[in-house]
């Protein structure tokens, strides 16, 4: 397990400022005109420090995977900046972009479709045998094809490929959600070991809140293209102040039948609104039990809520809610 790695004075290795991605919606076949936009990511800012793991959680459609693609420059950002060691990588192209990509690698959810079926593992990874050893696979497997491996082994290959160029940052998009429980633990342990060994920074995107807590130093919660709340794992899980985070945490089933009665469940009504037509003001207000007129009129900013400002309580972390208040929903305290 990683020791606490937060140090406010340290320079972030990756700095994301006001990142926006709108996918245009068009109408017409010959003469396409834009009739709207899917606001997949709508103004997101965060930092990633050397050697830390930042977890990003949220439900499907909240934009977390788009963030990963933007950071890799697989999608061009509509606006905003991503600074890697002080350099804005959203504007780069050609050779300069290639050089940066060497240092930012990605591990995908589906280890099968993200490996080329017609290349042997040796071809895929490069300086192979050493790396296979690092990720706990038999180096003799060099000449095998992806279909000859199990899911967990494939994900190890995906990780080995990510490591091949000695990157500093690895962006993991749902790296273990396709794996069985018993294999999941093996891959998580491997990722933590490699982080210590190579001083890697992880951006760990997942929908499984328990796994994110386990591996992350800090956690950001996304809802409909915006960051709802961000803080250390303890701040988010034990002292959440945003109603969405509270609802999300309370909905996670805990593997303890004795907790069945005692836990309070916040059951949200309705579905996530369409990102093509998000609600005015706070994005969460249509499903929020605290919503008032102010929430429809005024967009809450991601900041330390005034009532907690200057306090040394763990509730004093950034939360984008007009009526932020602490609530223990996990029942750890």
């Amino acid at each position: 397990m990683a020791e606490p790695k937060k140090d406010a004075r340290r320079e972030p290795i990756l700095e994301v400022r006001n990142l926006v991605k709108h996918f245009p919606l068009t109408q017409g076949i010959l003469f396409k005109k834009q009739v709207g936009a899917v606001k997949a990511v709508d103004g997101i800012s965060f930092e990633l420090y050397q050697g830390e793991t930042l977890g990003i959680v949220g439900e499907s459609g909240c934009g977390k995977s788009t963030v990963a693609k933007l950071l890799m420059n697989l999608e061009r950002a509509t606006s905003g900046e991503v600074f890697y060691k002080g350099q804005d990588i959203t504007k780069l192209s050609g050779r300069a972009l290639k050089a940066v990509r060497r240092n930012i690698q990605m591990v995908f959810q589906d280890p099968y479709t993200s490996l080329n079926p017609r290349m042997t593992v040796g071809d895929i990874i490069g300086k192979v045998q050493e790396l296979l050893d690092v990720v706990g696979l038999n180096p003799e497997y060099v000449n095998r094809y992806p279909h000859q491996f199990s899911g967990g082994q494939r994900q190890r290959i995906g990780i080995a490929r990510g490591l091949a160029l000695n990157p500093e940052i690895i962006i993991c998009d749902e790296p273990v959600s396709a794996l069985d429980v018993s294999v999941q633990a093996q891959v998580i342990n491997l990722m933590e070991k490699l982080q210590d060994e190579f001083n890697l920074s992880y951006l760990f995107i997942a929908h499984d809140l328990s796994i994110v807590r386990h591996i992350s130093d800090r956690v950001g919660v996304m809802y409909l293209g915006k960051m709802a709340e961000i803080g250390t794992d303890e701040q988010i899980y034990d002292h959440p102040t945003h109603p969405y985070t509270q609802a999300l945490l309370s909905a996670v089933p805990v593997p303890d039948p004795d907790a069945r009665e005692g836990r309070e469940r916040i059951i949200l009504t309705g579905d996530v609104p369409s990102p093509a037509n998000p609600p005015s003001g706070c994005r969460f207000r249509t499903r929020c039990w605290k919503a008032q007129d102010k929430c429809a009129e005024e967009l809450p900013l991601l900041a330390i809520p005034e009532r907690f400002a200057g306090s040394d309580s763990l509730a004093a972390h950034e939360s984008a809610c007009h009526f932020a208040e602490e609530k223990d929903v996990v029942g750890a305290a």
Partner: peptide, 15 residues
């Protein structure tokens, strides 16, 4: 082998 939501564990037990 499952991580817990309500506590930050040490290294996971892996089968």
């Amino acid at each position: 082998s499952i991580p817990r939501l309500d506590q930050k564990g040490q290294e996971l037990y892996a089968i």
